[in-house]
Simulated scan of single mutants.
Amino acid sequence: MTPERLARIKQVLNTRQPDLRVLTDQVHKPRNLSAIIRSCDAFGLANMHVVWPKEGFRAFRKTAGGSFHWVTTHTHPTMDNAVTELKAQGHKLYAAQLSDRAVDFREVDYTVPCTIIMGNEVDGVNPVTAEQADEHIVIPMMGMVESLNVSSACSIILSEAQRQRKLAGMFDQRRMPDEEYNRLLFCWCQPTVKRYCDDRNLPYPPIDHETGELIDGVGWMQEVRKLRANRPRWDDQPENVAED
Rank of each mutant, 00 (worst) to 15 (best):
G65N: 01
D80K: 12
C197L: 06
A133R: 08
L93E: 02
Y204H: 10
W70G: 01
H76T: 06
S99N: 09
A95I: 03
T72F: 02
D235M: 09
G219M: 07
E135A: 14
Q190I: 01
S39Q: 00
I117F: 07
G169S: 08
Q190E: 09
T73S: 14
M79I: 01
Q222W: 04
N47P: 01
I215W: 09
F60Y: 14
W234N: 13
H49S: 11
I37R: 03
S155K: 01
D172W: 08
D41L: 14
R225N: 09
V27A: 05
V71L: 05
M221L: 15
Q97A: 05
A7F: 07
Y181K: 02
A133W: 08
I207C: 05
Q162H: 09
G124W: 01
E213Y: 07
R195C: 05
T78Q: 01
V108I: 10
E146K: 12
A133H: 04
V83W: 04
E179N: 11
W188H: 06
N149Q: 09
R183D: 12
G212K: 03
D41T: 01
R174E: 10
D178Y: 06
M79G: 07
I207P: 01
R195W: 06
R31F: 15
D80I: 10
N126K: 15
K54T: 13
H28G: 07
D109V: 13
G65C: 07
I207E: 03
P53A: 00
L184G: 03
E179C: 05
A102E: 05
D41H: 09
T192H: 14
F171H: 13
C187I: 12
Q97P: 00
T84E: 13
N182M: 15
F105N: 06
V224N: 07
V51Q: 00
A242V: 13
A168N: 01
D134Y: 04
R21T: 15
W52S: 10
T2I: 12
P205S: 08
R58A: 12
V224Y: 07
V218R: 13
R233F: 05
T129E: 00
Q173K: 14
H136C: 00
T129H: 02
V193F: 08
A59K: 11
R101A: 10
Y94V: 04
W52I: 03
G212V: 07
